[in-house]
């Protein structure tokens, strides 16, 4: 089971209306099937991620069951059901970093933050993503927190790094 979405919803009525209008436009432009992905892309563009409310709006507007909309949203890596945190953490899982143990660092972050990759903590402080090579293989394994880069990270150092941002 995925972590239940308990991130508070901060969307506005204007954003909701914008999404409804956008879906209306999509429907006019492309009659027929296969509109769910286009609508999800719009939703993500408007809200920055896909809150529950956006999926509900899409389901109603396209008459596609909510379960199916959710299924499509969780299938494609481009869609995120979680907002990005105040501190966006990236861990490189590229070849060099991975060989040097970035997988353990990534796992340690999941355990410490109690989230999985792609998710965000309930307090909206941290979000975690796996990244491709960020171009400093000499420092492998590498993690980033917003614009700060940490090289040769070990799992043991993870709590210390997080503590800096928790205050």
């Amino acid at each position: 089971m995925a972590k239940k979405l308990e991130v508070p919803y901060n969307g506005t009525k204007e954003q909701e209306e914008e999404l409804r209008a956008a879906i209306g436009a999509i429907r006019t432009a492309h009659a027929g099937k296969g509109l769910t992905i286009a609508a999800l892309q719009k939703g993500q563009e408007i809200f920055g991620y896909l809150p529950e409310k956006a999926l509900q709006i899409i389901s109603e507007a396209l008459d596609v069951p909510l379960a199916e909309v959710y299924g499509v949203a969780t299938f494609y890596a481009q869609f995120s059901l979680y907002p990005k945190g105040q501190y966006k953490i990236g861990v490189c899982l590229g070849t060099a970093c991975y060989v040097k143990g970035s997988g353990d660092v990534y796992q340690k972050l999941c355990d410490e933050l109690k989230i999985k990759g792609g998710e965000c903590t309930d307090d909206l402080k941290f979000s975690l993503d796996a990244t491709r090579c960020i171009g400093c293989c000499g420092l492998a394994p590498v993690m980033t927190v917003n614009d700060d880069v940490y090289g040769k990270v070990t799992p043991d150092e993870v709590p210390k790094i997080l503590a800096k941002y928790r205050t």
Partner: peptide
């Protein structure tokens, strides 16, 4: 035409579930 279940997630994580699992 109720559609309360669907395949969710992808690859090995794919399973049949409801919206938001």
């Amino acid at each position: 035409q109720v559609g309360v279940i669907a395949p969710v997630r992808r690859g090995f994580a794919t399973h049949i579930g409801s919206a938001f699992e």
